[in-house]
Computed example of a mutant assay.
Amino acid sequence: MQRSFARRGVLGAAAAVGGAALLAPLAPTATAAPTARAPWPTGFPLPRGFQPEGIAIGSSPYAYFGSLADGSVHRVALATGRGRTVVPPLGPEHNVVGLKIDRRERQLFLCGGWNREIRIVDATTGAPLAAYTGLGAADTGINDVVLAPGAAWFTDSFNAHLFRLPLDRHDEPTGPVETVALTGDWEQGPGFTTNGISRTPDGRSLLVANTVVDGGGLVRVDPRNGRCRRVDLGALRLPFADGLLLLGRLLYVVQQQLNTVNVVRLDDAGTRGTEVARITDARFRIPTTAAAYRGRIYLPNARFDVQPTPDTEYDAVAVERVRG
């Protein structure tokens, strides 16, 4: 039987916790609206039955989406909303969860979820470039990835470690995947614990979403030794934090089952943050991750509150980027 990889994993939990309308108002509140960049679409369909989870956008106006259903990758032109499959399906026993594109827009780094695999493919042709298989333990779920100078870092949703893939200055892999244990302030729950990953504004450390610490929050990780420190977010709690997107000092935190994106202004070191905006939109249907192009933030709707079928409709939506 196929094990479905969902970042928060409980079907129907969105109905239990309610939608964005249950959130208390925040001043200022960012309410998503179509931008002035029309006729570029502010939403577009993805293939039926695709089960999107991750998104990646480089410096060119194309978004890449990974499929939980079969490990394929779909590329969409942001100017038109039209897309095509660039990485062919591998079958129902494979997943693509998080993904990132390198600085030269030549390679896609794909998180393999339950199949305990990291793949690197050509971003244009989808041709396989490298694969690392059998990573971690039997319960490993390779969830999200961030590229940093010298390494690609991957989260494991069910274990207290990160995977590190060494890279050269051209983002080419140079060695085997390493395991870096998470210590210090890290709290590991009995099940799903680790989610999205980003860099700190100063680029020296990593930020990881942890569903347990502080009732759901962020942890700053020293990449040299895995030592963790809780990020002081004041009263803000992030129990459903999924994808993390850092733009300058603003961190966009996708709270998928709340149909909300919390925007947090961080200090340079990423040790503390203050919520400055909260984005909600009637088009959100459990968005999971986020990527930016110009003045917009793009998010795939994972629809974890419905039982997926080959005919289930999926889409992605765009909202305005928060300024300041």
Results as ranks from 00 to 15, higher is better:
6 A>Y: 01
7 R>D: 14
10 V>L: 15
12 G>S: 05
14 A>H: 09
17 V>R: 09
20 A>L: 06
22 L>S: 08
22 L>Y: 06
33 A>Q: 14
34 P>M: 12
38 A>G: 05
44 F>R: 11
44 F>I: 15
51 Q>I: 14
55 I>Y: 05
57 I>Y: 05
58 G>W: 01
61 P>K: 09
67 S>C: 08
68 L>V: 15
70 D>V: 02
72 S>G: 01
73 V>L: 13
76 V>R: 10
79 A>D: 15
81 G>Y: 03
83 G>W: 00
92 P>H: 08
97 V>K: 06
100 K>H: 11
101 I>F: 08
116 R>P: 09
116 R>F: 06
117 E>D: 14
117 E>A: 15
119 R>K: 08
138 A>T: 11
140 T>D: 03
148 A>S: 15
160 A>M: 10
161 H>Y: 03
163 F>Y: 12
165 L>I: 07
170 H>N: 15
174 T>H: 04
178 E>R: 15
191 G>W: 08
193 T>K: 06
193 T>D: 04
194 T>V: 15
215 G>N: 08
216 G>V: 01
217 G>W: 02
219 V>H: 03
221 V>C: 01
221 V>R: 02
222 D>K: 01
223 P>C: 07
223 P>M: 04
229 R>D: 05
236 L>V: 11
236 L>A: 07
244 L>I: 06
252 Y>P: 02
254 V>A: 10
259 N>T: 07
272 R>M: 12
277 A>N: 12
277 A>M: 08
289 T>W: 05
293 Y>I: 13
294 R>G: 00
294 R>N: 04
295 G>N: 14
297 I>S: 02
297 I>T: 02
301 N>D: 08
307 Q>L: 14
311 D>T: 12
315 D>Q: 00
322 V>Y: 00
323 R>N: 05
324 G>F: 00
